[in-house]
């Protein structure tokens, strides 16, 4: 049911883990099946220099997390915000229709992490 690429990213996921001093952390849950995805970002000069994830979910959710983190690594924040779940699914050579929502989770987790980063930046400005 899954493409070879999905299985590759599931069995050998890229960027699994946490970043201790992350600049932005996003955690989202899936209303559909109850899964959870957490993304950590390290950002320098508006660019994502490191990214890690942890996911509690199905094969498609883990592969989507892995692929999404690969796709935004080295990108600017603006570029990362443009990442859609469709692009993640396409990069994985497609997902079964019932599993499309798992790639939505990846898109949302990245957006949430960037939002968290921006909020922290604002707080820093207010405090300094």
């Amino acid at each position: 049911m899954y493409s070879e690429k999905v299985m590759d990213h599931f069995m050998n996921p890229r960027n699994v883990g946490e970043i201790e001093d992350a600049d932005g952390v996003g955690e989202v849950g899936n209303a559909k099946c109850g899964d959870i995805m957490k993304i950590y970002l390290k950002i320098r000069d508006n660019r994502i220099v490191d990214v890690k994830f942890k996911t509690f979910g199905c094969g498609a959710a883990i592969a989507s997390s892995s692929m999404a983190t690969e796709l935004i690594k080295g990108k600017t924040i603006e570029e990362a915000l443009e990442l859609t779940n469709k692009a993640v699914a396409e990069a994985l050579d497609g997902l079964p229709p019932i599993k499309m929502h798992c790639s939505v989770l990846a898109e949302q987790a990245i957006k949430a992490a960037i939002e968290d980063y921006r909020r922290r930046q604002q707080e820093k400005q207010v405090n300094s």
């Binding site: 599931f10 069995m11 959710a61």
Partner: peptide, 25 residues
């Protein structure tokens, strides 16, 4: 802390056929 489908896929890679009551499956 883990989800059943990813467990099934991992077992399948090792040649083991099982099933799960997870929402994702």
């Amino acid at each position: 802390f883990i989800e059943g489908e990813s467990l099934l896929l991992s077992l399948d890679m090792k040649g083991i056929a099982a099933s799960s009551g997870s929402a994702c499956t």
